[in-house]
Amino acid sequence: MKLSWFNKKTPTYPDFWNDYLDCFNDTKKGDIQNTRFIALDTETTGFNIKEDRILSIGAVSFIEKKIQVNNSLELYLEQDIFKPETVEIHGLMKKGLLEKVTELEAIKLFLSYIKNAVLIAHHANFDKNMINEMLLRHGLDELKNEFIDTGILYKKSKHIIYQSTLKPISLDDLSKELNVPLVDRHTATGDALITALVFLKILARLDKRKHLKWDYLLNK
């Protein structure tokens, strides 16, 4: 007897989405050392998941401790929704001089870039929700990748004595704390690089015996 949900008609997805899903066929997790990580950041028109839109996505990838500059992603999206008040922060004009892509094009490029890498972001939930919302708008499903939040990870890395008094920490403060050079703050790629370095520095501070494990990193 077959269970009913096996018979449910699955929606037909475009090829690029199926290609993306294929990346997850091998479910076995490898060593942390050999895993491809991608640190990413999005710049948006605001903080409302439903209404606001992604203006740009920046991402850098690394394996072990080596970040390859020529293997980074920097996407600027064409927008209909545009709020003049947020321009001040990230300086992305609606019709700027930058080469822009449509949302769908951005999704294709983004998915083929990230594949099954473990994604890292500061306050990751926001970026994750923004991206998922964008995928759903285009009739796709949510991201399948594992996420690591540098904000949460940092808090866990601190000495137990100080943990209780720690407040959520901004990427700016965290970079200062960990002595990461702050360049290109508030461009998606710049923040992605900062997030990558922050992540590597936190990893170096963790107790190698106890904490360098997936369960700990992925906050399970």
């Binding site: 850098v60 500059v69 920097e74 360049v183 461009t187 790629t189 690089l193």
Partner: peptide, 12 residues
């Protein structure tokens, strides 16, 4: 494609 990180490496 624009690569902001390369620009920063360049600056250094």
């Amino acid at each position: 494609m624009k690569n902001s990180i390369a620009d920063r490496v360049f600056d250094f």
